[in-house]
Write a protein that binds this DNA or RNA. Structure first.
Lengths: 149, 149
DNA sequence: CACAATTGAATTGTGTACAACTTAAAATAA
DNA sequence: TTATTTTAAGTTGTACACAATTCAATTGTG
C-alpha cells in the first residue's frame, strides 16, 4: 500500500508539472508564468490586496512573491503601494493593462478544461475533495513536536 | 465547468507542493530533496542507468539532472561513468553508501502513506488513473501546429 | 568514404519554491 | 512610556524546472 501511495505522490508531481507547462505555454504570448497568472486571477476576483493576503491565498511566502511581483510590476500589469495606515503593508493593485488582461486571457480556462479530461462537475468536485484532503494531510506531516517556548 | 477545472489545477499544484515539502522534511536528515530521492528510487529499483533513461522515467531533462546528479555525486551516493561503447552516454550507478540508503529510508514510504489519507488500494488506483489521464492530456495541450520542415 | 543530421550530456539563463535572515514598523507587556 | 514581541515585506542562498544553446560523438545517407 505504501508503494501505491508513493506512486500517487509521483503522479501528483508529474500532473502538476504537466499542468504548469500547459499554462505557461498558453500564457507565453504574454510572457506570463503560471504563478504570475495565479496572482492576476486573485486580483481580478478580489481587487487590490496586500502581499500577505495574496500569499495566504496561494500559499506562497514573500521570498517567492516579492521578486514575482517585481516582475509583474516591470511588465506594468500591477502597481505596489505602501499602505498609509500601516507602512509595513504593501498593497498590490491592477493597472489598466492588468485589468484588461482578464478579457484577453478569457480563453485560458476553456483551453485548460480540455486538458483535465474531467467530464462532469460531479466527478471534478470529488476529485477536488481528494486533492484538498491530501494537501491538508501532507501539511500535517511529518508530525512535528510543537515548539513550546 | 472551466472554472472548476482551473480549481483542479490549483489543487493539483498545492497538493504537489505540500507533498514535496513533506518528503523534503522527512529526508532532511540526509540532506536529500524529493527529486534526488526519486533518482535514488529509480537506481534502487533498476540498477545503473544512463542519464537519459533516468530522465525518461522521471520526465526530467539534462538541465535539471546534470546539476542534481553532481550534487548526489558530491554526497557520494552515486558515481557517474562515461560508457565505453558510446562515450556520449554517462552511466549513473549507486555507491556502497547510496545502496545502503535504501534500508535507512525504508520508513519514508510508510510515513508518506499516512499523508495521502487514501484508505484502500482500490480508490488509490482509481485516483492514479485520473492523475495519469490529466498528465497525458496536459502534455497534448496546447494543440500545436506540427513543424513541417 | 565524406558529410549532414541526430543524439547525449552539459551549460547558461530565467523563474519559481522555500528556508533563514534582515529591517522597519506596529502591537503588546511591563 | 519604555521595552519586548510580533508582524510585513524584502533579501540571500540553495535547489529544482525548463527553454535554449553548445559540444562532442555517433548514425545515417549519398
Amino acid at each position: 500500500m505504501a508503494i501505491v501511495d508513493e506512486m500517487v505522490c509521483f503522479a501528483l508531481y508529474s500532473a502538476s508539472r504537466a499542468t504548469t507547462r500547459a499554462y505557461t505555454e498558453l500564457l507565453s504570448p504574454w510572457q506570463l508564468t503560471y504563478t504570475q497568472y495565479l496572482v492576476l486571477v486573485v486580483l481580478w476576483n478580489e481587487g487590490s490586496k496586500p502581499v500577505r493576503e495574496i500569499g495566504e491565498m496561494l500559499q506562497l511566502d514573500s521570498g517567492t512573491l516579492s521578486p514575482l511581483l517585481r516582475r509583474l510590476e516591470n511588465k506594468e500589469f500591477i502597481r505596489r503601494e505602501r499602505s498609509q495606515n500601516d507602512t509595513r503593508v504593501v498593497n498590490v493593485e491592477l493597472t489598466e493593462q492588468g485589468s484588461a488582461l482578464r478579457k484577453e486571457l478569457a480563453h485560458v480556462p476553456e483551453q485548460i478544461a480540455c486538458g483535465t479530461g474531467l467530464l462532469d462537475i460531479q466527478s471534478a468536485r470529488e476529485y477536488l475533495d481528494t486533492l484538498h484532503q491530501i494537501t491538508e494531510q501532507m501539511q500535517k506531516l511529518p508530525i512535528k513536536i510543537q515548539p513550546t517556548n
